[in-house]
């Protein structure tokens, strides 16, 4: 770990001000950042500890039928997953969070930090390897290397890394909104638009600008339906997703009325393709229809040898989720 200047932010504006500096990073739970600092993947000159700001509240947003939920950026993953309203109204989020990491890590990891979690690409975390994300212009070691855990959707010739988290995939299915503050202003970004594709600037994971701090994630009013989070991994716990599907599904008269789906482990961001809901809604569930949905999802999928399997795996995992939600027998 490189030496750094440690500062504790006493107020949000103070934190925003400090993090406007290019060599400054904000520290919340630290479960990802400290890991990367030890590897010298992250080398901030100043670390701004925002952990004691009052951003941990989980509270109703709005009232009545439009009553959403605002999850503070510093709410821990544990607090969110255990929150009665999350469990009752947004079970896909609770399931997604609980499918990730371990209890120890979730006790420390925060909402904002988890959104900013960086990729697990083996070449990104090894500073003696080329990586355009870590060191723009150095090349991508994964494309010709071991790409087992890498992306098949939305990749670029510069980067095939995945966003590794689960929480954000569930939030993408729920169409949640990220609230962002800077020293003098604030803005909102849908979770579905928060993470970026790598393109030719893979060093940028998301749309957060210097000096911007995530303050909360807001969930829209509950929509009911069947909530599922399905994660395929190499061991039964404590492993990143090879592929995951977050689904909020509703049917009336055996026809889809809602099909909010998001995918993890496949791309540089939680993957949401609005065409899938368009295809499903109004139609009767069937294996043939699920196959068409997978065709849409995977239309532009590209494997890199080692990860070719993710394409059929994503198709099958989607079918599994849709069968479970609709009762269609395979």
């Amino acid at each position: 770990m490189r030496p750094f200047d440690y500062q504790r932010a006493e107020r949000l504006t103070h934190a925003a001000q400090l993090t406007a500096d290019a060599d400054t990073l904000a520290l919340a739970g630290g479960t990802n950042l400290i890991d990367l600092m030890k590897l010298q993947v992250e080398t901030p000159q100043t670390l701004v500890d925002i952990g004691r700001l009052s951003l941990g509240e989980i509270a109703d947003e709005g009232a009545g039928k439009a009553r959403g939920l605002r999850i503070g950026a510093l709410a821990t993953n544990t607090a969110t997953a255990a929150h009665p309203r999350v469990r009752a109204d947004y079970p896909v989020l609770a399931r997604g969070i609980l499918a990730g990491a371990t209890q120890q890590l979730r006790n420390k990891a925060t909402t904002g930090g988890n959104l900013c979690q960086r990729t697990r690409c083996y070449y990104f975390t090894n500073i003696d390897q080329p990586c355009n994300k870590r060191e723009p212009g150095s090349g991508c070691g994964a494309i010709k290397g071991i790409a087992r855990i890498h992306a098949v959707l939305g990749t670029s010739p510069h980067c095939i890394a995945t966003y590794p988290g689960d929480m954000a995939v569930a939030m993408a299915a729920l169409d949640a909104t990220v609230e962002i503050a800077s020293e003098n202003s604030s803005r909102s970004v849908p979770v579905r638009g928060f993470h970026r594709l790598p393109g030719d600037t893979p060093e940028r994971d998301n749309v957060l600008e210097p000096g911007e701090i995530i303050t909360a994630v807001t969930l829209p009013a509950p929509v009911g339906g069947i909530h599922l989070y399905r994660k395929v991994r190499e061991r039964s716990s404590y492993a990143f997703a090879l592929c995951s599907v977050a689904a909020v599904i509703a049917l009336e008269d055996n026809r889809f009325t809602r099909a909010d789906l998001a995918f993890g482990g496949l791309a540089h961001k939680p993957w949401h393709d609005p065409r899938i809901a368009d295809l499903l809604i109004g139609n009767e569930p069937s294996l043939a229809l699920f196959d068409k949905a997978a065709d849409l999802l995977l239309e532009d999928a590209q494997g890199y040898g080692e990860n070719d399997f993710k394409i059929p795996l994503a198709r099958r995992t989607l079918a599994a989720v849709l069968c479970e939600a609709t009762g269609v027998e395979p």
Binding site: G30, T31, N107, K108
Partner: peptide
């Protein structure tokens, strides 16, 4: 492991278990 990948460093902070390797003492 020093990277939050094994749990050998688990301690309780305020009664809650965490990986002490992924937390800076100053915090």
């Amino acid at each position: 492991c020093d990277h939050g990948q094994c749990g050998a460093c688990t301690v309780l902070v305020g009664g809650v278990r965490i990986n002490s390797c992924l937390s800076l003492a100053v915090t």
